[in-house]
Nucleic acid binder design. Structure first.
Lengths: 186, 186
DNA sequence: GTCGGATGTAAGCGAATGCTTACATGGGGG
DNA sequence: CCCCCATGTAAGCATTCGCTTACATCCGAC
């Protein structure tokens, strides 16, 4: 049976709704009333449980950031992230990249979380090469993933938006391997 | 001497201010009061000369889009765009990419202009390879440029944000050439 | 010189937003 | 049983936003 008075469930519903809406519309164009409405609760509870819209946004990013990278060893991170971005056809906006990209946001804890998320990706990727500028190369590969996400999700650029996931993944990993592979003479 | 009553100069000042602020903050976080204030004119003139904030934004994008691609033949387009993004250290936000990237959303004519801008880049790039999926490859290269711009300008991701322009350009063009070069057996 | 339209200004309207407050209610422990 | 506090609600406050309106002022045509 449903439990109408359940703080934990209400908090979770707010977080889920916020995750979805921030991802779809970005920070500015998502209102606390929208979030509360989608969660089916009163908007005052958002402030009771999360303090502010900014703090809720930071929580969304922190939660998703923590869930990342757990499944993918570094060797397959690029491939897996690309496949996820390309394949989740109906709802690619669930990917945390979207919430971040759609919210150019300066102040608040979100800035820290956002940067930290990039750091985690880049650190994992940089382990794949022993070049001197490994971190710069990792940043460039991360930039590629981000750019593909933007062109697909934000611009809707064709033919990329509807391209076959395997084809795109193959092309990108092939080109990126120029930057990330270990020196063959090692 | 200055001409205090000069409609053309006022219009231009508003466009300049809007270009700068939209590029720095994006559409949502730029207010018409900010634009008018930076231009040194009354905000009512913004509506007299451009009709609405949306229309002004569309004008900004259309103006910058028209100025693009005029200097660069296709062979050097990637290189030149990369250098421009990487080198304009103090004010990279002048690049029209930034105004678009920071304003991911919204209907109106801006959507059309934004997509058209991507089309022009992609068409130029796709001429560089004779592969079957030339357009997809061009999209991927365009995505890379966009992603680098995002990581630099929006995220401020290090070490990319302060990396040497020539180094970045060399790495990217080298890897991208895997996608864009003509088949060697032709 | 003066009249009229082009240019610029001050003030504010209605709506939306983030957030707060005062109050209702229900369910578990004594 | 009943009381108390966690949970949920309704209403509104203060601010900001895009945009409008009513008015002042300057300059060129005649």
């Amino acid at each position: 049976m449903s439990r109408p008075r359940d703080a934990a469930a209400t908090k979770a519903a707010l977080l889920d709704a916020a995750t979805k809406l921030f991802g779809e519309r970005g920070f500015d164009r998502t209102t606390v009333r929208d979030i509360a409405s989608l969660a089916g609760v009163n908007q005052a509870l958002l402030f009771r449980y999360y303090g502010s819209k900014d703090a809720l946004f930071a929580t969304v990013l922190a939660t998703q950031s923590r869930e990342l990278l757990e499944d993918s060893p570094a060797e397959h991170l690029l491939r897996n992230v690309l496949l996820r971005i390309m394949e989740e056809r109906p709802r690619p906006e669930d990917h945390p990249l979207y919430a971040v990209l759609r919210s150019s946001h300066h102040d608040s804890a979100a800035e820290v979380v956002r940067r930290q998320m990039g750091e985690e990706y880049a650190r994992a990727l940089s382990s794949l090469t022993d070049a001197e500028d490994a971190e710069l190369r990792a940043d460039l590969v991360l930039a590629w993933v981000v750019g593909i996400g933007v062109l697909r999700g934000v611009f809707g650029k064709q033919p990329l938006a509807d391209a076959d996931a395997a084809t795109v993944t193959a092309l990108v990993t092939q080109a990126a391997s120029v930057l990330l592979e270990h020196t063959r003479l090692g």
